[in-house]
Structures are given as C-alpha cells and as structure tokens.
Design a binder for these strands. Sequence first.
DNA 1: TCAATAGTGTCTGTGAGACACTATATC
DNA 2: GATATAGTGTCTCACAGACACTATTGA
Lengths: 232, 232
Amino acid sequence: MADRHHVLLRLAVDLAILTVRENCLHVLVIERDNEPYRGQYALPGGFLRADEDLPEAAERELVEETGLDGRSLHLEQLATYGAPDRDPRGRVVSVAYLAIAPDLPIPVAGSDAQTAAWMPVGNALGGKLAFDHGRILDDAVERAKNKLEYTTLATAFCAPLFTISDLRHVYEVVWGTELDPRNFNRKVANTQGFVLPTGDKRAPETGRPAALYRRGTAGYLNPPLLRNGIGA
Amino acid sequence: MADRHHVLLRLAVDLAILTVRENCLHVLVIERDNEPYRGQYALPGGFLRADEDLPEAAERELVEETGLDGRSLHLEQLATYGAPDRDPRGRVVSVAYLAIAPDLPIPVAGSDAQTAAWMPVGNALGGKLAFDHGRILDDAVERAKNKLEYTTLATAFCAPLFTISDLRHVYEVVWGTELDPRNFNRKVANTQGFVLPTGDKRAPETGRPAALYRRGTAGYLNPPLLRNGIGA
DNA sequence: TCAATAGTGTCTGTGAGACACTATATC
DNA sequence: GATATAGTGTCTCACAGACACTATTGA
C-alpha cells in the first residue's frame, strides 16, 4: 500500500433496474441532457458522496430516479468497471448495482428532472447506451438469468400478490424460453418457502381464477430450477 | 451525474488468494509493517494506478505479491467495499478480487519485501485481519464454495496434472464435507469437458496408482454438483 | 355450448446416494 | 498373504420432462 503511483478518482454508482412488462424484459434508462453522450440513453446513476457507503448511494440513486423506496426492491451489487478511458471527462470508476422491480406504472421523473423510460433490453444492447453501460446491462441480465435458477429472485419481479402463472411468466421472459405450466406448478409447490398461499384468488379476463401467493421466506431454491443446458 | 457532492478518493485492489494445503483452505496474507494496523495481517493489495484497468491492477498485485504469472491462475472480481470509515487514512474504496491457486511451494517474497504467508481461513476469520478484510475473505470463501457447485473452478485449485482423488479432496476441504469417492468418480467421468484423461498414472505412498487428468475446456458443470442442502 | 386459463395425476428416463465388489499397488 | 487406495456395477429413490385429464370461470 506504499506505492506512489496511485490516482485520485471519482466513483460512480450506476443502476441496472430490470422489470418485466408486456412480454419482454425492460431496463430503466435516462436520456442524457449534458455532454458527453448528450441525447443518448444511459443507465441512471451518480457519484458517491463523501460520507456514503456504496449501498446507501445505490439506494439514494434509486429513490431519486424512480421515486421508489429502495428497501422494497431487490438491490444487489453487480460489478465494478474501471477502464481508464471509460469516461471522457476523466477517471471515473463505476460500481454497478442490479435492481429488480415489479411492473411499475411509469418511472417517476427524478429530482434531476431527467427523462426516464423503460426500454426493452433487446433495444438497449448492441452499443446503444452511453459509456460502457451496454456491457453493464449485459452483465446485469446474465446475473438475473443465473439467479433465477437457484434463488427466489423471480418473486422480486412480481407484485406483492401474484399467481403461479405470473411467476412462470417471469421465468419465460427472462430466460426467453417456454416452460410447461403443469410441471412448473408442481415444482413451485414442492419447494418449501418459495411462495405462500394467501387463500385469495384473482380472475383473469377469461378462464378459471388463479390462486394468489405472496413471497416466501426462502432465499435459495433447493433443488434449483435449472434451464436446459446452460454454457453447453 | 451533475451533482456537486461527489468525493475524490483512492481505489485499492485487494486480493483474496485461496489454496488448499494440508487438508484445509488457506489464504495468502501479508504482515503489515506500516500504520495503520501495523503488525496485523491483511490481504495483499495496492492502489489503482493512473492508466490501469481493474483486472490489470489485480494481475499486477498478484505478480508482485506471489511472483506468479496471473494468467496461469484463476482471477475474478469479487465485490467492492466502500464504507466511509473502512480505512483510517482517508477515503479508500476497495475492489476485491478472488484468486484460486494450486498448492504452491511457498509465497515468494513480494517486491515490496513484505512477509507473505499462507494462513488457514479458520484462523483469519473473526476479526483477525486488518481493515474489513475479514469480511472480504468471508465473501471470497462463500463465492468459492458456491462456484464449485456449478462451474469447473475446482480444477483451478489443482496442479496441471491431478487425480480424481485430488479433485475430490478440493471439494471436501472447501465445502467441509465428505463425498463418496465412487459416486464422485462417476459424476466427474459423466460430465463432458470437466477433466481430460492423460493416460499417465501416479502412485500414492501405498495402493493402486491413480490415473492423471488435465483440466477440460468446460467452464460450467451441467448438471451441477450440488451440496446437500444449501441455504436450507 | 365453447374457449380459455388453472390445476392434478401418471408415466418414464436421468441421475444422485448408498454400498458390494473388483483391481493394482506396497509391505 | 494384509493393507491401502483406485475404480466399476447395481439398486433405489427423487425429480424433471412429457402429456392426458379435470376444474372453474366468462361469453
């Protein structure tokens, strides 16, 4: 720790906020109204303040950008990005956080009065986002896909009360696959602590009403709910 | 990105280098010969330099502390720690990396001439390490345990040539459990790309010689090799 | 009645856990 | 021979995938 080559830098905390709406995975983006990358879309974020810890900063940004209470959302550290040229304004290292939200009505205009919008992740990938945010989004989606397998993260995409169909829909949209509803039902029912029955029901537009559930207390799925052939 | 409350800070890159030796998991620690925490053990690390990316810095520290070529070791970003008071010298945020090494003869004295040593992780947990390095080590061990389940990471703990017993020993030590040698053999043999037969054999002190293997090309285990009841 | 969604039951193949048995080395 | 480690075969149970069937609503 005694070397003299170190550099002073600013630390950004950027958020990849994912949700499922209209049969596809969306990410919250803001339109930049300052240089650099003016007019382009970017992930919401901001700089770390003097007396802040990283999770605090992430939660603060979440509130500022979406108006949501960070404690009600799933929020976890994703990774840190530090290429020397990643920000043309100077040396900025970014700690990215992954947030998972239920289908929200519409992002509240942040206190920064920036234009926030939900964008399908398919549109956001492929170099469309400012800075290295496309790469961050890639990693966020990959993390979400993986965590659905062995954790109860899927419930974080759902409203407080949800049906088994809702939950299955999350898996199908995030993974981009189709799942057998009957096998999925059995799997969820047999996993202790994944979902809790409430006794209530919700009628769809047509068809038999579905039982409503609440998140269970389990954090991990044991055994996991595996995709067919990852990394194969 | 326009707020004015941001802080300039230094970024540390710290390494949790794990290996298996003598039936227990060890971590590489250095004895600090400067304040703060003088005389205490800490994870090796250093500050990010002006033109460095994070993986570069991690690899540089690895070479400086162990004399090893970073490209031959498994090295991955673990997490970033930024509590405002984590370093008494001022605002320092640390990006931690997890490195996995085979059982090395002895750590080479780094170019910093610091005293490096392998310490059993059991001894290093519980507030023995400087800064928040105990917490970092906790997270590193947890990550390693989890990745053994669904990736081929265990081979990174082994020398280039290893037996199935060696590989099983890694699982047993890292997980702290016993595995059935016969079922383990079958599992490894049936997982394409986990290990490659070399045709050579190695005789133990007593008993039948064991076939030697090399790492395969697969990165993921499919299906995974699950512990009994995680998070239960 | 039909259409649509919710939910149960059954069969089958794969693979994990348990464990008997065989193989090959040193002493 | 004894002992120690390496490796194979077999049985059983749990569970995933496939899919026939029943249940409950609105039109």
